[in-house]
Amino acid sequence: MPNWNRLQTNSFLECSARDRAVGLVDEGSFVELGGPFDRLVSPHLVALGEAVENDDGIVTGVGRIGARPVFVISQEGRFIGGSVGEVGGAKMVGIIDMAIDFNDRLVAEFPDLPPSARPLVAISFETGGVRLHEANAGLLAHAEVMDALQRARHKVPVVALIGSRIGCFGGMGFVAAATDAIVMSEFGRLGLTGPEVIEQEMGKDEFDASNRALVYRTTGGRHKYVMGDANFLVDDTVAAFRAQLADLCALPVSSFEAMRRIGSPELVEKQLRGVALAAELKPSDARDVWRHAGNNDPVGLADGPLADFRKSVRRLAL
């Protein structure tokens, strides 16, 4: 086990999936379930002669923040780009279902249990989405995770934490959008179609994936915060992500409704207002939207220290 106290000051961006899982919950409380010694390797990769990992690139387990049981899923971008296949998807579903079952049992037995002692799911995303090697099994895994999130609705809050190297793209971008709250750092990236895929489909003139500044100002944490896709923008340390998660742990599940992106007729209408605004504004760059939101110096705002950004940024009102 890594040293918990040292982990807190570490860059979240730099942390492995296991370090994030351990550091996000209270010291010494993380218990890994389905860990490397259980040897849950992907049979598809074995068949293809590709390197395997004993946790299939996803760390799952449970810990505590205060009195609240926190069920943790943490994806490892260094193993095949954090891609989610059959085994990893099943691990995610298993942990979400475990949180729901535990919640149901607790509430049945202790109806007066305060919200801050009821289960919560935290997902630290680092993934490009479906593991292409696993084809339909990988796609199905995504659908099953989506389904599990629906089962958790109004029972167990699901919080997304995005601040790792790969970001959160592809099918897992949809999954993140379906969670109750999204916490990002400025190094986090969130999107549906990944930059390389956009370039491949639409051409380099439309989107140059090697232009990291462009990629980040289209998918990065600061932009997602302006757009309202991310609810919270925190510093790049494990402690900062953990502190935000701990704040959320104080809230009842009902309080998360207002943070969601999808899942109600009102939210659908809000999304449609966004579509209408895009049609009207015809932005050629993310900066145009920042300006529309009331930020007069989007370039300076993007380049300045994060603390200044948080203080002075205007977020898009839809």
């Binding site: 400025e186 190094f187 090697s210 232009n211 990291r212 500044a213 462009l214 980040y216 990065g220 944490g221 600061r222 993007a302």
Partner: peptide, 10 residues
């Protein structure tokens, strides 16, 4: 320091 676009990840 003002890094070229390809090196900026924010």
């Amino acid at each position: 320091y003002n890094p070229p676009a390809r090196f900026r990840n924010w």
